[in-house]
Each structure stands twice: as structure tokens, then as C-alpha cells.
């Protein structure tokens, strides 16, 4: 049991964050939500009786085995899927209204950058669609490139960049129009662990700096615990929420924190939750 770094003693104690979530304002409110897909083999209950509230400034991870509906839940929030039952509000409105008001930025599993556009043009894509002026676009692209440390790569094309850089560009693109909510669907799932660690740290700093609300889908326990203020453990068949674990670690954590007892304890609890949800059963 080694305590690395000076900040580790803070993590034991309460002070979760110097900047508390903004007065407990609810960004996402989900009640009794279910979603059933009709397939040729009969109905599939992708989500069943989901209740979840996410407050402003939180970093919430959805974790679970494949097929537990975590991506589907994120897509419901983004209005990419329509629930069969229950209520959901995003910023106090329906997901569709929120989407039409461009309330969130979405980061997919793959970078999904358009190969015919340079990095700068890719970051500017949502801005073009949303009708920003040319000058405004240029300013925001520059800001986005700074935010994800891609200065000097604006003229490159996506296929000339490494996978990690591409995913950083896609994060810059999601943030370019400054949405208050960031939805991320296993954004680092396809990257190797070293790159993933680095990007996790950068993402955490970015979240701390911008104060966005983040909903983050992952299947990595260390990633979920490291990043989140709240880990939502989901279980499959039907997809439902098994447990919600609060992570009261400091906002200014570094990768070293993963060696601390507090971190290991949280990770243990997440794993326990997954086990109870039969996530390890075939």
C-alpha cells in the first residue's frame, strides 16, 4: 500500500471538488424509462425501468458488459433512439428539443472524422452547419485545437494522424460549439492502453477547466473510477441499472491515484456490482 504523490491524503477525505455542481441543477432526468427493440427473433429489452438523474458539472460513467444497454441509454439521451416507455428530460426539455437546440456534443467510439476534410475543417463542421460566421469559426477552431493539444495539425487530413490524435480531434469537434453537455460513447475503446491513459488525464483536465457535464460510456473499470464523480453500473438482459457508486476523489487527480486504497476500494465496489449483475456469467 503505497501512497504516491502529495495529494493522496486528500482523496481519503471528503472534499470532493472545489467547484461543486452548480446548485444541484438537473441536466438529465430519467424516470422509469424502457426501450424495446422489435427484431425478427422477437422483442429485445434493451433498457428496462431506468431511473437516473445527472446534475450539472458531474462526470457520470455508464459501465457494464456488452449488451447491457449503456450505449443505447446514451443514444436515448442524444435522441438517436426513442424510448418505448417512461420519461426523460435533457435541460428540462425533451431530448429532441435539446438536440434541435444543439445542447450536447457527442463523441463516438470511432473518430468519425470526414476523410475529405482537414482537421481544422472537421472541427469547423458543426459550426458550418450551425451557421457561425467565418471569423467566428476560425477563432473557435483555434481554441479547439489548443484545448486538445493539436496545434500545428490543422492542415493535416485525419488519415495522416494517429488514432489517438484523431480521437482528440473528434473531441475538439464535439466541443467546438460549446455545448454544456458532452456525451461520450467509449471514445477511447479502440486505442491502446498507454494512449488511453494519456487521453484520460487530458479529458479530466479538460472537464475540470470547462465545467461541462459529461456522460461517459465505458467497459473499463479503472477508466470509469478514475474519471467519474458517479459510476452507474448496468447489467444485461434486460438492460438495467444495478448500482450507482459515488466517487469522491479530488478533481485534480492524476494517474497515480489509481494505486491508492480509496481508488482500489471504489474499483472493487464497481466490480462487485458487475458481478452481482451477472455480468461475468455467459
Amino acid at each position: 500500500m503505497t501512497l504516491v504523490g502529495g495529494r493522496s491524503d486528500e482523496t481519503e477525505a471528503v472534499p470532493r471538488s472545489p467547484r461543486p455542481p452548480g446548485g444541484g441543477k438537473r441536466v438529465i432526468d430519467i424516470a422509469n424509462l424502457s426501450l424495446t427493440f422489435m427484431t425478427a427473433d422477437g422483442p429485445v429489452h434493451a433498457l428496462s425501468n431506468i431511473d437516473l438523474a445527472i446534475e450539472e458539472g458531474e462526470f457520470v460513467s455508464l459501465i457494464g458488459p456488452s449488451g447491457c444497454g449503456k450505449t443505447t441509454l446514451l443514444r436515448v439521451i442524444a435522441d438517436l433512439e426513442t424510448p418505448s416507455q417512461g420519461t426523460i428530460s435533457v435541460n428540462g426539455e425533451s431530448p429532441q428539443e435539446a438536440r434541435l437546440k444543439r445542447a450536447y456534443g457527442y463523441v463516438f467510439q470511432a473518430p468519425a472524422l470526414y476523410p475529405w476534410r482537414s482537421i481544422a475543417q472537421n472541427i469547423a463542421l458543426p459550426l458550418e452547419i450551425m451557421g457561425y460566421s467565418r471569423a467566428e469559426r476560425a477563432a473557435r477552431v483555434k481554441k479547439g485545437l489548443d484545448l486538445v493539444n493539436l496545434q500545428g495539425f490543422e492542415k493535416k487530413f485525419p488519415w495522416q494522424l494517429s488514432g489517438g490524435m484523431q480521437q482528440r480531434a473528434s473531441i475538439a469537434r464535439a466541443l467546438s460549439f460549446d455545448p454544456t453537455l458532452l456525451l461520450m460513447d467509449e471514445p477511447f475503446g479502440a486505442l491502446d492502453e498507454i494512449v488511453r491513459d494519456k487521453l484520460n488525464e487530458q479529458l479530466l483536465r479538460l472537464w475540470d477547466k470547462t465545467g461541462k457535464t459529461v456522460v461517459f460510456v465505458t467497459h473499463s473499470i479503472p477508466e470509469a473510477v478514475f474519471l467519474s464523480t458517479k459510476v452507474v453500473v448496468m447489467s444485461p438482459r434486460p438492460g438495467q441499472i444495478h448500482d450507482v457508486i459515488e466517487c469522491k476523489l479530488s478533481r485534480e487527480r492524476t494517474l497515480d491515484i489509481r494505486e491508492t486504497p480509496a481508488f482500489l476500494d471504489l474499483a472493487h465496489r464497481v466490480r462487485q456490482g458487475l458481478r452481482e449483475g451477472h455480468s461475468y456469467v455467459d
Binding site: A78, R102, Y106, F108, I129
Partner: peptide
């Protein structure tokens, strides 16, 4: 791909865009 089209949907992009 579906992902690219979803991306446009998250921007609430209209058909011409």
C-alpha cells in the same frame, strides 16, 4: 456509415446540409 449520419443528427443538421 451509420455513425457519420448519427453525427449529423446530433448537430440537428437539415437535409441539404
Amino acid at each position: 456509415g451509420a455513425m457519420e449520419r448519427d453525427l449529423m443528427k446530433t448537430y440537428a443538421a437539415n437535409y441539404p446540409a
